[in-house]
């Protein structure tokens, strides 16, 4: 796993003690180039989970079980004005394709299914199993 070229600085430019800042702009929470959020592990996958928003009930089992912090969450208000999470997608840079999310998905027809990496997501959604 070689380091990207732009990160390969020389001995005279590295930070003393190998100390890594998490944020480039801590106030605005802009993550630094050193933050693994900006790293890609996509090439670990052979299959990817595809998310079907139409079937999702926002139980967030996938979010809490994901070891790679992949689920993209939007904060919305429910009918009673309480904040709650809405799953809106998967960060494919960070997903390693472990399929835990698919296993824990409780909807009668799963809202998450594994597809081969080369299948387009729209195509995958078309292939989704239907209620019989």
């Amino acid at each position: 796993m070689a380091t990207p070229k732009e990160m390969m600085t020389t001995w005279d430019k590295i930070q003393p003690g190998a100390v890594l800042p998490s944020f480039e702009d801590p106030e605005k929470k802009i993550r630094s180039k050193f933050n693994s959020y900006n790293y890609k592990v996509a090439d670990w996958r052979v299959e990817k989970p595809v998310f079907n928003r139409d079937l999702c009930i926002d139980c967030d089992f996938c979010w809490v079980s994901c070891p790679d912090s992949c689920f993209i969450v939007e904060e919305v208000e429910n009918k009673r004005g309480k904040k709650q999470a809405k799953i809106v997608g998967i960060n494919y840079n960070l997903c390693k394709g472990c399929a835990v999310c698919v296993e824990v998905c409780p909807t009668p027809i799963k809202s998450l299914l594994m597809f081969p990496e080369f299948v387009d997501n729209d195509e995958a959604l078309k292939q989704w199993p239907k209620k019989d």
């Binding site: 993550r31 070891p67 790679d68």
Partner: peptide
């Protein structure tokens, strides 16, 4: 954050 190198499903 993700992008760590723990095994898939760790």
């Amino acid at each position: 954050q993700g992008g760590h190198r723990l095994c898939p499903g760790c």
